[in-house]
Simulated scan of single mutants.
Amino acid sequence: MKHVYPKYVTKSAIEGLVKKINLPSPDEFSQDWEYEVSDSSRLTEFICAYENFELNIDEKFALMIIIISSFNDAIVERKAEESSARRIRYHLLQDISIHKNTIYYWSMLDEDDLDNCHAVTSFMREIAYTAKLDGQDKS
């Protein structure tokens, strides 16, 4: 049986994270809630929540997207810390079965020009290469 990796943030994951991490609920106009609630000033808090809260697979998937988006913002703001990078890298590789599609998304393996990529793309490509992901086995 082929393993199916999460691809989308579910309503139940949003509801769980709103309660557990005190995130704002999506409003009627929300799209891509996981990007709307990202916040570089809360990055350490989000990583600690990932490490210490009891989260199901869908919540881990959604929270990691929030973490990476927040880390991307921290890079842009020149506030990214190596300790955060190490912890994020560890969790992405440790839970690769949950985060494979997220790694593909942020690493933008099909784009040759890094100027057309996210600030976090180089970091995510390093993780993709470490995990031996080549973009051919997307699920």
Rank of each mutant, 00 (worst) to 15 (best):
E34P: 10
L93H: 07
L43Q: 04
E45C: 12
K79H: 09
Y90F: 06
I68S: 06
S30Q: 13
F29G: 08
Y50I: 01
Y90M: 03
S69N: 13
D32V: 08
L92K: 06
S84K: 00
I75K: 07
D73C: 10
L43F: 02
V37N: 02
D32E: 12
Y50P: 04
S30Y: 07
I75E: 03
E34I: 00
D73A: 11
L63P: 03
E34G: 06
I21L: 15
S41Y: 08
Q94H: 13
A74Q: 02
D73K: 15
L92I: 09
L93C: 14
E34W: 04
N101A: 04
A80D: 10
V76T: 14
S41A: 10
D58S: 11
R78L: 07
E28C: 07
I65R: 11
I68E: 02
Y50E: 05
I75S: 02
N52T: 14
A85N: 03
N72C: 10
P24E: 12
I68Y: 00
W33L: 04
I57S: 05
I21S: 03
I67T: 05
S70G: 11
E34Y: 02
Y50R: 07
K79E: 15
F71D: 07
I21V: 15
V37I: 11
E51Y: 12
S25F: 07
W33K: 13
R86N: 06
N101G: 01
K60A: 11
I66H: 03
N101F: 02
A49E: 09
N101H: 09
Q31W: 03
I98A: 03
D39W: 00
P24M: 04
R78T: 05
A74S: 15
E81R: 10
M64C: 03
H99E: 06
S69Y: 02
R87N: 05
E54Y: 13
E28T: 15
N22R: 12
R78C: 01
C48W: 01
R78W: 01
I65N: 09
A80W: 05
M64I: 09
I68G: 04
L23G: 05
I96M: 14
Q31Y: 07
F71K: 09
I67S: 03
R87D: 02
I98Q: 10
H99W: 09
I98F: 06
K79R: 12
P26Q: 02
E51H: 07
Y50S: 03
A74V: 00
S38H: 08
F46E: 01
F46D: 00
D58K: 11
N22V: 04
V76L: 11
E51W: 11
A74F: 01
I47Q: 05
Y90C: 01
S84R: 02
S69Q: 15
I96F: 08
K79A: 14
N22G: 15
L55E: 04
C48E: 09
I65Q: 10
L43A: 07
L93R: 14
R87S: 07
I98N: 09
S84P: 00
I75R: 04
S30F: 08
D39L: 08
Q31K: 15
K60L: 09
F53P: 00
A49P: 06
S38D: 08
L63N: 02
L92A: 10
I88A: 00
N56T: 15
L43T: 03
L93M: 13
E59C: 00
D39V: 10
F53Q: 14
R42K: 13
E82I: 02
